[in-house]
Design a protein around this nucleic acid. Structure first.
Lengths: 157, 157
DNA sequence: CTTTACGTTGACGTCAACGTCAAGCACGAC
DNA sequence: GTCGTGCTTGACGTTGACGTCAACGTAAAG
């Protein structure tokens, strides 16, 4: 695997701590209901990345978690964005381009000119993605042909 | 466009020089038939990359052009590999991984164990590519839904 | 022969995307 | 209290993928 894997969703230990009532003060979740916020470590573990990576994404403005005092608090909105970021990375987009993409999704759409700009951007994105899809299809069919050739060689033994 | 474009196939000037009979000595093509070899500049221009990039790919062993004296001569085999490399790049693979892929295509396949190894590698590659395809499909359908939403907003004006 | 164009080899620079310390605060546990 | 754990901010290091620059060779053209 080239890119990130291991989304182990390892919420075991912190869950146990929560059940023991020893949840840190900056965690707002009340007894019983599932936590609607996450720490940087929880987010990082869940997505299979490091806290340093999460912070880097914040540094360049890809996510902007809440601050409770000095501590970062991640909400579902941040998780959604992180998902988009990582999918963009799996597709090989640079982070700068990923930013323009996800910023597009919550760009202002009040005026007609804004909407038309957004629609234009959508078309560009689609062109790009479809080019990538074509590349993938080509690579996959080459791979298939190559496998056939190998299997023929194997049968010939 | 994030990745390389501009494959202008600008063979105009060098073609004119060839027609004038002023082709350099290291170009073997006889009068009349199309050149079966290319210089680094021709290759770079044709693929829309720089000669420095081509040399870099040679440095890390992705291509190994013929040397006539000190000068690099590129054959169709090199162009094929360059095509694979650039497609891999469009798909976001790192060069090291691209090397393992294209090396796979001309790996030794004599013994059964070798063939079985290659077949295993093929499966890994396919998994990876199919994951990327799923990511692309997801991104494209999100884009479609987003466009519908924008068009609805536009109609509502 | 000199110029001009293209080719060559290093060596160093740069930019993105993080990794890797170091040093410090804040909290609950003991 | 102090200990450990987790979070924080810098600041610098690293790796991949080239870009840039200098210094030079060589061959066709004028």
């Amino acid at each position: 695997m080239a890119t990130g894997s291991a989304a182990k969703t390892d919420r075991g230990r912190s869950g146990a701590r929560a059940a023991a009532g020893a949840r840190p003060a900056y965690r707002t979740s009340r007894e019983g209901d599932p936590p609607q916020t996450w720490t940087i470590r929880e987010i990082a573990d869940e997505f299979g990345i490091t806290h340093r990576t999460v912070r880097h994404y914040e540094d360049i403005g890809l996510i902007s978690p809440e601050r409770r005092g000095t501590v970062r608090i991640y909400h579902r909105r941040d998780r959604t964005r992180l998902g988009l970021i990582l999918r963009g990375k799996r597709l090989g987009f640079p982070l700068e381009e990923i930013r323009t993409i996800i910023d597009l999704y919550d760009a202002p759409r009040g005026r007609r000119s804004q909407l038309e700009y957004v629609l234009g951007q959508i078309d560009e994105r689609r062109e790009d993605l479809e080019q990538r899809r074509r590349d993938i299809e080509a690579a996959l069919s080459e791979l298939d042909r190559f496998e056939q050739s190998c299997r023929a060689d194997l049968d010939a033994l």
